[in-house]
Design a protein around this nucleic acid. Structure first.
Length: 221
DNA sequence: CACCAGGCAAGTA
DNA sequence: TACTTGCATGGT
């Protein structure tokens, strides 16, 4: 596989990037969610959406005691849509969430632990088989709800890595994910913080694709 | 006012 | 295969 630089230097460079972000921003303590189930729901609701809006939606469910697999599945999809309205794309997401809840109920007996017990690739494939769960949502669920070492890639990841020569144009989601996973120890805590730190960097700095902005913790890196 | 936010699937050429 | 479009709220 053609890589922007030799694999020998890639691993240390990815660790160096992590250390710099950690030093600059500190631990991010993702994912805000009290239970794995709540994290899973949040993962669907936050698709292309600000987390603050997702919290409003989840609070609507919590306030009514609906934040459980059984309660949500018993809810008419139209009512679910109204409750998650603040998260945006609410009709779409109500359907996507129901798809995923059906998968959990029908294929795993409603037991998330049964999902986490599968080999990572099989658990990931199961999640991806649910319409509305793409690679980033699947990896977010595996990592942040299941505590499994599945690296999460997002738009910020492409932008930051691309700018610093660690991701060539045309590299796709799978390519970038495996680049991280083949060059870092398979530690869930590391993957957890790493992704959160990349998002944190993207949120407050360096929104442009080309030059680095002044004051960025990666300036000159 | 425009633009963005922790995507995904379906449609088009 | 490689773009493009629809989905939608709330904050800056």
């Amino acid at each position: 596989m053609a890589q922007p630089q030799s694999p020998d230097t890639l691993a240390p460079r990815l660790m160096d990037l992590y250390q710099r972000l950690l030093a600059a921003f500190g631990p991010q303590h993702w994912w805000p969610g009290e239970t794995p189930f709540e994290v899973l729901v949040g993962a669907v609701l936050t698709q292309n959406t600000n987390w603050g809006n997702v919290e409003r939606a989840i609070n609507n469910l919590k306030a009514r005691g609906l934040l459980s697999l059984e309660a949500l599945r018993a809810l008419p999809s139209g009512e679910l849509a109204e409750l998650i309205r603040p998260a945006g794309y609410y009709n779409l997401k109500a359907g996507r969430l129901m798809n995923l809840l059906d998968l959990l109920a029908l294929r795993f007996g409603g037991d998330l632990e049964a999902l986490w017990r599968l080999p990572l690739t099989q658990a990931r494939a199961a999640l991806l088989s649910s319409k509305g769960v793409g690679p980033e949502t699947a990896d977010s669920i595996l990592l942040y709800a299941g505590g499994l070492p599945s690296f999460v890639v997002d738009a910020y990841t492409f932008r930051v890595l691309g700018r610093h020569g660690l991701a060539e144009p045309g590299l796709d989601y799978h390519g970038l994910r495996t680049r991280f996973m083949h060059n870092l120890p398979a530690e869930p805590d590391l993957y957890n913080e790493y992704h959160a730190l990349l998002v944190r960097l993207g949120k407050h700095h360096c929104k442009k694709t080309t030059p680095q902005c002044a004051g960025c913790p990666l300036e000159g890196w």
